[in-house]
Amino acid sequence: MTGWPVGFRVRPSADPDSADVEVTDTVTGRRFRWSPEALARYIRHGADWAPTGDGGGWATAVHADDDRRHLVAGWRHWQRRGWYPSDQYYVASRRWDYADTVDADEAIRTATLQRYLEVDGRPPEERPLDGLRTALGKPAEPTGDPVAQLMVSRRSGRAYVPKPVPVERLSGLLWYGLADVRARRHGTDHARPMSYLDSYGSAWDFHVCVYDVAGVEPGAYRYDIRTHELISVRPGNHRQAMTDVLQGMRSPATAAWTLGMVADFPRYQWRYRHEHGLRRLYLESGILGQQLVVLGSAYGLSTLVTPAQRDRPYLALHGLTEDRYAPVYTLTTGWSRGSAGVDFMDESRRTDLLARTDASGR
């Protein structure tokens, strides 16, 4: 052996009582157990020390290493960025066995759901709200630009043209951008427990902090995805409060709104009672966020997407409890300034920019 084999990771053993360490092959997902002493000798000398109870598997995996040289640049990039713990987590997840991996007749899932219902009752419902409702009305149609063009041309917007955005565009963003979530929410039926597992988007509540939308009063709202309405939670101008929530980022100063994706953990945990569910939740947030950002571009809007919010003040602003909810992503949106909007706007420039854009109709 010359050097450490490509794509192998050393990690503690999953068994807390074991004195061994685990070496995982991130390509195949295979795991090997070594005593620390034997592994140290192997790393130092390249001696053919066999892992505990492995037989010839280790030698086979190492000798296949030459087929991976094209992956080296990618792995080094992950290491430089500090992302390498993620590949270990991915490899660990590949060894999990799920009871319903083979369940063509749905018998396993049906029995599991029946047990959940008997022990815990139905999944938790969305928290009802009694605030004033604002109908968003007919959504504006986005431009017909190809998605590929929108993805290539879009920029993260940190500053925006400080003019009101018509409510029809906010309506369109929420109507079309969350269409898949809405369809599944409507399709959940207590008479069909299997519908609980068609769960894409089931964890999410969507909150909108409106700053400057024509036809909607400023304030903090929850979006009712079924009725396409905004439910008032806390009226008022919350630009400064949201700036504080976003760790001092000044995007709310010129934005039209901030959309928050808030996870209701009990709704999701009822369905998925293992660690994989949390990973899937974060993947969903990325999928939904990307859809909303690209769709916003089709409306002439740009967006700052960030998970870097202060959870406790955000939850307090939107009337949410810390023991059940967690904000995962915020999307702050306004009229796009193109590449000029990549930087934060100084407040002193707002009046001048507003005067220069009066004739734009935007």
Results as ranks from 00 to 15, higher is better:
residue 62 V to A: 03
residue 85 P to N: 08
residue 59 A to F: 03
residue 86 S to P: 04
residue 359 A to Q: 09
residue 129 L to W: 11
residue 304 L to G: 01
residue 202 S to H: 13
residue 73 A to C: 06
residue 50 A to L: 11
residue 274 H to G: 12
residue 314 Y to W: 12
residue 252 P to Y: 02
residue 119 V to W: 13
residue 187 G to W: 05
residue 91 V to T: 15
residue 25 D to W: 00
residue 103 D to L: 05
residue 131 G to C: 03
residue 4 W to E: 06
residue 57 G to M: 01
residue 22 E to M: 14
residue 211 Y to R: 04
residue 302 S to W: 04
residue 175 W to D: 07
residue 278 L to C: 11
residue 36 P to I: 05
residue 356 R to P: 12
residue 56 G to L: 01
residue 122 R to Q: 12
residue 127 R to Q: 09
residue 1 M to C: 09
residue 336 S to K: 03
residue 291 Q to L: 13
residue 275 E to A: 15
residue 13 S to K: 02
residue 203 A to W: 07
residue 173 L to P: 01
residue 71 L to V: 11
residue 7 G to H: 00
residue 16 P to N: 10
residue 340 A to I: 07
residue 22 E to G: 07
residue 348 S to D: 13
residue 131 G to N: 02
residue 39 L to Q: 06
residue 188 T to M: 10
residue 84 Y to P: 06
residue 178 L to S: 06
residue 307 P to H: 00
residue 246 L to I: 05
residue 204 W to D: 02
residue 301 L to G: 01
residue 157 G to P: 02
residue 269 Q to M: 14
residue 330 T to E: 08
residue 197 L to W: 09
residue 4 W to I: 03
residue 239 R to T: 02
residue 60 T to F: 00
residue 243 T to A: 05
residue 59 A to Y: 03
residue 351 T to H: 14
residue 169 R to C: 07
residue 130 D to G: 09
residue 171 S to E: 01
residue 259 L to G: 07
residue 155 R to F: 08
residue 150 L to K: 05
residue 200 Y to Q: 10
residue 262 V to E: 06
residue 194 M to R: 15
residue 204 W to A: 01
residue 33 R to P: 08
residue 122 R to D: 11
residue 6 V to S: 04
residue 154 R to W: 10
residue 150 L to D: 08
residue 165 V to T: 03
residue 170 L to M: 10
residue 323 D to P: 10
residue 359 A to N: 05
residue 126 E to C: 07
residue 79 Q to N: 12
residue 227 T to K: 10
residue 153 S to G: 14
residue 179 A to I: 08
residue 86 S to I: 14
residue 247 Q to W: 15
residue 194 M to C: 05
residue 19 A to R: 15
residue 326 A to F: 15
residue 223 Y to R: 02
residue 330 T to M: 12
residue 191 A to Y: 02
residue 335 W to G: 00
residue 91 V to R: 13
residue 75 W to Y: 12
residue 95 R to H: 10
residue 298 A to T: 09
residue 276 H to F: 14
residue 230 L to P: 03
residue 105 D to H: 02
residue 347 E to K: 09
residue 330 T to W: 11
residue 150 L to C: 08
residue 239 R to A: 01
residue 308 A to V: 07
residue 225 I to G: 06
residue 311 D to N: 12
residue 265 F to P: 09
residue 56 G to F: 00
residue 174 L to S: 00
residue 291 Q to I: 11
residue 197 L to C: 10
residue 124 P to G: 06
residue 52 T to C: 11
residue 257 W to H: 05
residue 3 G to Q: 08
residue 335 W to Q: 00
residue 130 D to K: 08
residue 128 P to E: 01
residue 174 L to N: 00
residue 231 I to R: 04
residue 165 V to E: 01
residue 313 P to V: 06
residue 280 R to T: 14
residue 228 H to R: 09
residue 167 V to Y: 07
residue 143 T to W: 10
residue 4 W to P: 02
residue 3 G to C: 08
residue 199 S to G: 12
residue 176 Y to M: 10
residue 280 R to I: 15
residue 358 D to I: 14
residue 164 P to M: 02
residue 103 D to M: 06
residue 268 Y to D: 14
residue 11 R to S: 11
